[in-house]
Write a protein that binds this DNA or RNA. Structure first.
Lengths: 209, 209
DNA sequence: CCCGACACACCTACCGGGTATGCATATGAT
DNA sequence: ATCATATGCATACCCGGTAGGTGTGTCGGG
């Protein structure tokens, strides 16, 4: 939803035509987020459908200027006021991958973790030597710095997490899981008598009282 | 691509029918990643199209068992060997949002950052009090712990990053950007003789009349 | 002097992940 | 008897994102 909202926010500054939106987006984000031009037009159509945007004037060169509506301004305000939703990113993807891998017979999950660790370390090194090549002092540089720092912090966190994964895998061995042989019973399940008690805490969580 | 690969990896253990794949996935990931059943079937069809999977036997209950192919096994091996691609997650989304916001006239980017910080702190607190409620000692618990720790590390990193953002915003003020007034020149760009001087002057756009 | 490179400008088709929803059947609880 | 819930499958849809095609105008170089 980033592109959608960003376009809307730029239109809140003033009417723009499609291609212009892209250059404004690039200027403000330092070309940090690769944006396909085609996406602009489909997004504009969807915004129009949702009454957040409307077609405005057409200039001599044939440029169609899009204007933001009242609803659109409200949506921008809401976007700026609301924090972005929790996540669903790489960490989840990695977590699922490792979780699945550690249940597969004949798969060394530890090796997977260490491979990933090497890749992340390499990434971190590349980030360390990356330099902004553009006009300093402008919005592009700020955007670049913010993104760059974010990637660094992310990579560092990934390393910490991978170490934790290696630890969990090494210390709490789980037998490889074959396919479940229990035939599923249809219908409403029988009432369970006692749910297993005692949930373990993770190392990062404070000890339960 | 997580679901696609995970399904394939489970099929490498043995043939399964659609619904069975979902329960195996849940069992191995601790229901950590909410997986819509419908997705299984569309994914299986795509896997079949790509020759990674093929239709097998149908049992007495009418369950169609899917089998992995040789290409499929190769794909699983490749998935397990390759590290997960760099990212494109929340951090990017947040970075773009902050970058855009800090160029909008009349928008307090600092307030946006602090709002986000509050939300992340709240999230972190919730994570701190979260406990695994399931059968301890199994793969579900391991998956839950890995994911949980990942979320904690991620939230902590986000806080660090947001502090950095606040710092950048406070110390390197950028004038709010109006829409660029420079008319785009079509055609092949003129050969730039002195790129530094020309670009630097045009970087700071004066307010349009 | 024309050709090719390249930027502007727009449009369309397509893909893949994900969600919602509908349908049918079986079964235990109330 | 009825309802709630689980298994089991199928389909339509949306959305973000990518690829690729169509022109047009301008400049540099052969």
């Amino acid at each position: 939803m980033t592109v959608r909202h960003s376009i809307l926010a730029i239109l809140a500054v003033g009417p723009c035509y499609g291609y212009q939106l892209r250059s404004e987006f690039d200027r403000r984000t330092g070309s940090t987020w690769p944006l396909n031009v085609g996406q602009i037009y489909t997004t504009l159509e969807r915004l129009e459908r949702d009454r957040l945007v409307q077609r405005g004037e057409t200039d001599a060169e044939g440029h169609l200027y899009w204007e933001i509506t009242g609803d659109g301004r409200a949506a921008v305000a809401e976007w700026l006021a609301d924090p972005v939703a929790p996540a669903r990113g790489v960490r989840d993807e990695l977590a699922v991958k490792i979780a699945i891998a550690s249940t597969l017979p004949g798969v060394d999950a530890g090796a997977l973790v260490s491979t990933q660790r090497s890749a992340t370390e390499r990434r971190l090194a590349e980030l360390g030597s990356a330099r902004f090549d553009g006009v300093p002092g402008g919005p592009e540089e700020r955007a670049w710095m913010l993104l760059h720092d974010g990637l660094v912090i992310d990579a560092e966190g990934e390393l910490r997490w991978l170490d934790r994964c290696a630890d969990v895998i090494a210390t709490t061995p789980v037998a490889p899981l074959p396919l479940s042989t229990t035939r599923p019973r249809r219908g409403r399940p029988a009432k369970t008598l006692d749910p297993a008690a005692g949930a373990a805490t993770s190392a990062l969580a404070p000890a339960a009282p």
